[in-house]
Write a protein that binds this DNA or RNA. Structure first.
Lengths: 191, 191
DNA sequence: CTCATTATCTACTTCTAAGTACAGAATAGG
DNA sequence: CCTATTCTGTACTTAGAAGTAGATAATGAG
């Protein structure tokens, strides 16, 4: 009964994600997104709202992707240490410059002072909380695997810190062997 | 023989640092710096060059400050673990939201995709290398304090990762007790 | 005191990027 | 086939910010 949309919004969010990831929120112009996607600005505005709203959708989608993967990986029947090692290991391409040197969109956004809109901060905070919840739950549930006095809560946060650190330092393209060595060393805390 | 400058360049760099730190490079306008410093744009341009050059000077100065402090702290005669713990502990106010929630200017800049000018990247890379060199040298020199098989090189990098992670996560204002607990746990690797 | 020199200030230009108006195109239902 | 409705594309407006021109002020040398 009306003209149908000529594009799949999810495709456009994927393209927008790439551009935002590479250049950051502020430095990305909508013109670059229209150039990359072939979708003109009025269509973007109609479909997603303004630049802030578009970015928020991109970020939420990104968060959901990572959380989904974390859920799958951490739910494995393997020992907690191996599940977590595997989860961290999966980030190595993003930590070592193999998949570009852009690290993590969420961490890049968290450290971006220009993004002080409440909704973005909330999205990032919710994401971090859910990720840490997953780690904490896994460690608590596997307490039997660890020494007496092992603190799953502190350890979950330490892993969050290491994860963030690896992805923050991704921007200097460290060698993947070095990243792996750090993960191995930190896994020594899970005992 | 000519009109003297009416301001101390170092004062202006300090003010510019605060603004850049809070809002990031892209989102900071020179008008904000003139407003904060009282120095008009032509004077800024005459003294520092364009916005990129000003930011680079601010960043270099920031790096020098942190490196100087790291040198002093790590040169202590105390055991390496205590010297490093003290160094990391010094960042707690910046990691926990006590001194704002802006983390580290260098890490924020490293994760800022809009800052891909080679000079900024080089400054950050040189800073990270020098910092890691300090840690590595300290750990190598104190090898006698550690178990057989202790790897000072990997450990130095792990500490860099934790340091970066703590300051990246600073933007969500974690509790300082939590930050301290992570540092304590990681110091367990220095044995 | 006067001048050469450099700093400063106001006001401007220029450019980029966000957001939009409006005309034209595509569809489903009648 | 015709029309209401929604999408699309060109071209625009507007705002903000980088960078500068040109006049004016402050200093030290002579």
């Amino acid at each position: 009964m009306a003209r149908p949309r000529s594009f799949d919004p999810d495709d456009v969010l994927e393209i927008a994600r790439q551009v935002f990831w590479r250049k950051g929120f502020q430095a990305t112009s909508l013109d670059e997104i229209t150039a990359a996607s072939g979708i003109a600005k009025p269509s973007l505005y109609a479909a997603f709202g303004d630049k802030n709203a578009l970015f928020l959708k991109v970020l939420d989608r990104y968060h959901d992707g990572i959380l989904g993967w974390a859920e799958r990986t951490l739910a494995q029947p393997a020992p907690a240490r191996e599940a977590i090692r595997q989860w961290l290991t999966g980030f190595i391409p993003y930590c070592s410059g193999e998949k570009g040197q852009h690290g993590c969109l969420s961490i890049n956004s968290a450290t971006d002072g220009s993004l002080d809109q409440a909704e973005v901060r909330n999205s990032i905070e919710r994401y971090n909380r859910r990720l840490e919840d997953l780690l904490r739950a896994r460690l608590r549930g596997s307490r039997a695997e660890f020494r007496k006095g092992f603190d799953p809560d502190v350890t979950a946060h330490t892993i969050m810190v290491v994860h963030a650190g690896l992805l923050a330092l991704a921007h200097q393209r460290p060698d993947s062997k070095q990243v792996k060595a750090v993960i191995d060393q930190v896994m020594g805390l899970l005992a």
